[in-house]
Computed example of a mutant assay.
Amino acid sequence: MHLIIMRHGEAGWHTLDQDRELTEVGRFQVSKAAAEIAESPWRPELIWTSPYTRARQTTGIVAEILNCPVEEKSFITPDDDPGACLDALLENQSTPLMIISHMPLVGSLSTLLVDGHRRGIPFMTAQAVLLEMPVVGPGCADLRAQFLP
């Protein structure tokens, strides 16, 4: 399975966390990273997005560039347990899949899949990583590529 995990683009701080919107810089970052993904051989067939505004806005840009369907998932908000996302991945192993979410979830999910722990690696805004997994599980993924804004 190929899995692309992406953090939303830069967002403003003028409102409640779940309502924060992308800045112009954030929109540019997302477009740049999505264009790089579009040129790669690992285009997703489906995008899972957080319900938070900045993630949905990021997903809208990415989905348009990649011409990809989107499903909103309530279990991939900033402080959700990466184990819940892992459980969902086990149930739905469509490949390739893209997840657009937030820190610390994107960092903890990535390290759970690659290293088998949840300490979390840092992600810049609009950064994405490509993981390749022969089977879905903790410590089963290899980092194959990074897409930077």
Rank of each mutant, 00 (worst) to 15 (best):
C140W: 11
F75Y: 03
L86N: 03
E21A: 10
L109G: 09
S94W: 14
L130T: 04
L130Y: 13
T58S: 13
A11L: 04
T111W: 08
I76L: 11
A84K: 15
M1N: 12
W42C: 02
S31L: 09
D17S: 08
T49W: 02
P82G: 08
G26R: 04
S40P: 09
F147V: 06
V114L: 07
M1R: 15
N92S: 01
F75C: 06
T58H: 05
L97Q: 07
L143M: 03
E91A: 11
N67F: 00
A34Y: 00
R119T: 15
V114E: 08
M6D: 05
G116S: 06
V129C: 04
M124S: 13
L143A: 02
L131I: 09
T77K: 10
A63W: 09
W48A: 11
P134H: 11
P122K: 02
W42G: 01
G120D: 03
T53E: 01
Q57R: 11
I100A: 11
T111A: 05
T15I: 12
L46G: 07
A33D: 00
A55K: 10
A145C: 08
S108A: 12
H14E: 15
P104Q: 02
R27W: 03
C85M: 14
P134M: 13
L143P: 00
Q127V: 11
H2Q: 14
C140N: 11
V70G: 00
P69S: 08
L97G: 04
A88I: 02
L112H: 03
E45P: 06
M133Y: 14
I47A: 04
L86D: 02
H117F: 13
Q18S: 15
R54D: 13
W13H: 12
T53M: 04
I37D: 03
M1L: 14
S74M: 12
P69F: 00
L90H: 10
I5S: 00
C85D: 01
G60I: 11
Q127E: 10
T49Y: 01
L22H: 14
Q93F: 13
T77G: 10
P138F: 14
A128P: 00
L148C: 14
P122W: 01
L113A: 05
S94V: 14
I65E: 03
I37S: 00
L3T: 07
D81L: 05
D79K: 11
M6W: 07
P138R: 05
G120S: 00
A126E: 06
H8I: 04
M6C: 09
T53A: 04
I99S: 01
V25M: 07
V30D: 04
E45T: 09
D79R: 10
L3G: 04
